[in-house]
Design a protein around this nucleic acid. Structure first.
Length: 382
RNA sequence: UGGGAUGUAGCCAAGGGGUAAGGCACGGGACUUUGACUCCCGCAUUCGAAGGUUCAAAUCCUUCCAUCCCAG
């Protein structure tokens, strides 16, 4: 009987994930990573008790602070807009989960993310372009040419094998974007039992399993900032930020801002300038401590550079591979061609201009439902 | 001080006797495991002030106030 260490959050999704795995015959153990002290330990413990699972907590606060909070703050200080969640999933959550699983001798780790992991043979990304029928486009059970979906896979980590990440069945809830930074080692041991369900089904399952967390609202906002005011959080940590000018690209002064950290590229609200039509942040000028505004049409870009790349579907990208690019979570993808440069850099040329990619955010690219890889937006390419 | 023009919400702005459009900003909500975007809702009992005409005035009349422009 295979054993799984399930990351419990106290929410519906992880609860149902655990219940499903138990039902499938896994020996499940629940763990909650304590990142910041706002976790709902009681609910997670209650669900584990319901499901006859052991439950314990791991103090991850130091790790979370040194990896996530510090990067979050320094990224904002750098004039970028970080996405702490993508980083956390890889560097803290899944990493510690895997450590724990190793320490306790468990076979798998699991979370309640809406995405799918598939163990497959090495694939040829070029075959995707050639409309190859055998190319794994959807990641659904039974379409993997002998390789099985995560939950029943026996031989993870084998030679010539690769763990692929696909979008979840529920395209509205798909969270593969948040997982693009996971390593092969992490994906190789990861089970995502919710990948084949949509949110409504998960809620119904929660009811059927009679889980105490069935009616929990979905989580939202930054987990370590319960009141949602991330800028106030940063100022509590590093002090008041310097005010500066709000200007147009032509240098016209429109107003003042109270610190670059309060703004992000593409932002419209909170600028306090009334110019008859909506204006947006098109750039943050860290050197001059200025926010540069423009009209909607000024936000579009036809190419961006990514750094800090993580490739999931293959070791490298064929030249000019055409993919669907998501420059933000839950945003419609835009078609674009990838060019892998040296040093973990990828340049993307969009087929159609893309609206306001924000430096610091992640761009993730797909072939159909297959997540090819992603990276951090460095900025426009001049 | 003469001459001209203008005063409608935080900003811009329709309306020129019949009971205050719209945009921007702002506030609230929805959406959302980041930040944003987007969407929905709200936002002048009152039109610079005071009088007057009228069944009815932001609209017409009078006076005053304020601002802007041109002269000197």
């Amino acid at each position: 009987m295979k054993s799984v260490l399930v990351a419990m959050s106290g929410g519906v999704d992880s609860s149902v994930a655990a219940a499903l795995l138990s039902e499938q015959g896994y020996t499940c153990h629940g763990v909650m990573l304590i990142m910041h002290g706002y976790e709902n330990t009681a609910d997670a413990a209650a669900v584990c008790a319901q499901l006859n699972m052991s439950f314990y907590t791991v103090d991850a606060q130091e790790r979370f602070h040194s990896c996530i909070i510090n990067d979050f703050i320094s990224s904002y200080k750098d004039g970028e807009t970080p996405n702490p969640c993508v980083r956390c999933n890889n560097e803290v959550k899944l990493s510690l989960l895997l450590d724990e699983a190793d320490r306790l001798g468990f076979d798998y780790i699991a979370t309640g993310h809406y995405a799918r992991v598939v163990r497959a043979k090495e694939i040829n990304l070029l075959s995707a372009c050639a409309e190859d029928e055998s190319f794994p486009r959807s990641g659904s059970r039974g379409e993997m040419d002998g390789d099985k979906i995560s939950c029943t896979d026996e031989g993870f980590g084998g030679k010539g094998k690769r763990s692929l990440l696909f979008k979840g069945k529920d395209k509205m809830k798909d969270q593969s974007y948040m997982l693009y930074r996971l390593s092969q080692e992490q994906l190789g041991r990861l089970l995502l039992p919710l990948g084949d369900f949509d949110k409504g089904e998960v809620r119904r399952l929660a009811g059927r399993f009679d889980l105490t967390t069935a009616d929990r609202d979905d989580s939202q906002d930054l987990c370590f900032v319960p009141d949602g005011d991330y800028a106030a959080y940063i100022e509590r940590e590093i002090g008041k930020q310097k005010p500066g000018a709000i200007v147009t690209e032509q240098g016209e002064i429109l107003g003042t801002h109270n610190g670059l950290i309060n703004y992000t590229v593409g932002q419209r609200k909170g600028l306090g300038v009334a110019l008859g039509e909506p204006y947006y942040v098109i750039r943050k000028d860290k050197e001059r401590n200025e926010i540069v505004l423009g009209k909607e049409e000024d936000m579009f870009t036809d190419s961006i550079r990514l750094r800090d790349i993580n490739l999931v579907a293959a070791g490298e990208i064929p030249a000019d591979l055409e993919v669907d690019v998501q420059t933000r979570y839950r945003a419609p993808a835009v078609r674009g061609r990838l060019r892998q440069m040296s040093g973990g850099i990828i340049d993307i040329a969009f087929n159609k201009t893309e609206k306001a990619p924000a430096p610091g955010q992640s761009a993730v690219f797909y072939l159909g439902d297959l997540l090819v890889g992603g990276g951090i937006v460095e900025g426009k390419i001049d």
